[in-house]
Design a binder for these strands. Structure first.
Length: 422
RNA sequence: CGGGGAGUAGCGCAGCCCGGUAGCGCACUUGACUGGGGGUCAAGUGGUCGCGGGUUCAAAUCCCGCCUCCCCGACCA
């Protein structure tokens, strides 16, 4: 999707000179606590005269480099994307959700008009939503971040918020509109059609390996993870069941008689011939989240069928091998749909509408999920929510003309979603 | 940075208080029985007890110092 919409892959340096990093005041202020610095080098570990920052994100290195490629409105838009890892020196890390180093995709774009840049930010958010919902089967709430939660240096930040099965929210992607903030800091300008110098309008956006964590926590159960068919490396696993060599040969012949059909139907599958017991294999592949499992023994071979078990319900069904490719194709599509619907239902069942801070505090003492409420926009009130409701934060804000602020009771400017989040 | 806890076999732990030269579960190896939901039995492999020093005839155990990790809080997303 990213490439099809005209973005090119670029690669920018890992290490950022201090002077570059320091240029956008809000940006550096926001990231300062998490930046790792290279301060020594060489066999004697000598102090560097000028420390180098390990990129926590790449705006500050891309700015000074990209400006050379942008001179005229004819050079715009400049649409770049970079796959890399970044380092944020978190005090407390959490596997997949907040690690000190993580792999991601960061897009950085430069435009001749604010309108175009804002459209870009919305376009990408749509792509991210599609990745979350259509591929990972994770329903997401989208909206703007409150000023306190906005990316440092951005005019506004759009976000996707998913709900994990423990009813905590997780930010699964962000898309930022910078206006001319970064262009001003790095003097990224172009000659417009009137032959005047004008600062670029820029954006950045990213999704990371945190999505792996989201996948695990949005669908997993006590038996392990559940991987949506569309992204599953193995969509169907076949577990042969036999006692002796003779039985094995029979089952093997049977499987070989229809396994090519799976391949022809484009189904990613594997036959598990490991020297383990069937029960171990069942548990093993359930743990790994393989959507469909086929148990195949001598009795099935005789009957010309297999026993199909789906990871979601664990219900067993007999499936004739005739036309098995098409049948499994359908089953996988259904699985994808059901998984998404289950997550949607969970999100619906854990979404509430409340009016006062007292209600919100009481609610989050008992449970989690998303709570919709109204907010006047005062950051003091936002801070009060966080302290009094025990870490509850505003996840998204939408313009609103109705309702009263849940904290101060004054007419609200925004409709907000609240949640405890990772 | 504040509070708490833990370092003993690949993993999870007991033993420490009351010193006597290390044990349990899982995993692993071999064999037999087994095999349609994580099996049973038997025999095995595997450990400088986080590091350094001290006390003692003798230290996983007692004393001193150090290192590392985890949890809660603060911070961040």
């Amino acid at each position: 999707m990213i490439k099809e919409s005209g973005h090119e892959n670029w690669a920018f340096p890992l290490l950022i000179p201090r002077e570059y990093l320091m240029k956008e005041a809000e940006h550096i202020e926001g990231f300062a606590p998490e930046v790792a610095w290279v301060t020594r080098a060489g066999g004697n570990m000598e102090e560097l005269e000028e420390p180098l920052a390990v990129r926590p994100t790449s705006e500050t290195i891309i700015g000074p480099l990209i400006k050379r490629y942008i001179q005229s409105h004819r050079d715009l838009p400049k649409l770049t994307n970079q796959w890399n890892s970044v380092v944020r020196w978190e005090m407390r890390s959490r596997l997949f959700l907040r690690s000190r180093e993580f792999w991601w995709q960061e897009g950085h774009t430069f435009h001749a008009s604010a309108r175009e840049a804002m459209d870009e930010v919305a376009l990408i958010l749509g792509y991210y939503r599609s990745i979350a919902e259509d591929w990972l089967a994770i329903p997401v709430l989208t909206g703007k971040k409150s000023p306190a939660e906005t990316f440092p240096g951005a005019v506004y930040t759009l976000t996707l918020e998913g709900l994990m099965r423990d009813s905590l929210a997780l930010q699964t992607g962000t898309s930022h509109y910078f206006g001319q903030n970064f262009a001003r800091a790095y003097d990224i300008s172009f000659s417009n059609r009137e032959n005047e110098r004008e600062l670029c309008y820029s954006t950045s956006w990213g999704i990371s390996t945190r999505l792996v964590g989201a996948l695990v926590m949005a669908h997993g159960d006590d038996s392990g993870i559940i991987v949506p068919p569309k992204v599953a490396p193995i969509q169907v696993v076949v577990v042969p069941i036999f006692r002796d060599d003779e039985g094995r040969a029979k089952v093997e012949r049977f499987i070989e008689s229809w396994a090519p059909e799976l391949k022809a139907a484009g189904i990613r599958h594997r036959v598990d011939w490991r020297d383990e017991r069937p029960g171990d294999k069942y548990a093993h592949w359930e743990l790994k989240g393989v959507p469909l499992r086929l148990n195949v023994g001598g009795r099935d071979a005789d009957a010309g069928q297999v026993e199909m078990v789906d990871r979601l319900t664990r219900q067993k069904a007999s499936v004739p091998v005739s036309g098995i490719g098409a049948r499994l194709r359908t089953e996988l599509d259904t699985f994808q749909k059901k998984l998404f619907e289950r997550a949607q239902k969970f999100q619906r069942d854990n979404t509430f509408e409340l009016e006062t801070l007292g209600e919100v505090v009481a609610h989050f003492r008992e449970r989690g999920g998303f709570v919709w409420a109204h907010w006047c926009g005062e950051s003091d009130d936002e801070a009060r929510i966080k302290t009094e409701a025990g870490g509850v934060t505003i996840r998204t804000v939408d313009e609103s003309t109705s309702g009263k602020c849940l904290v101060c009771g004054k007419p609200a400017k925004y409709r907000v979603s609240l949640a405890k989040a990772y």
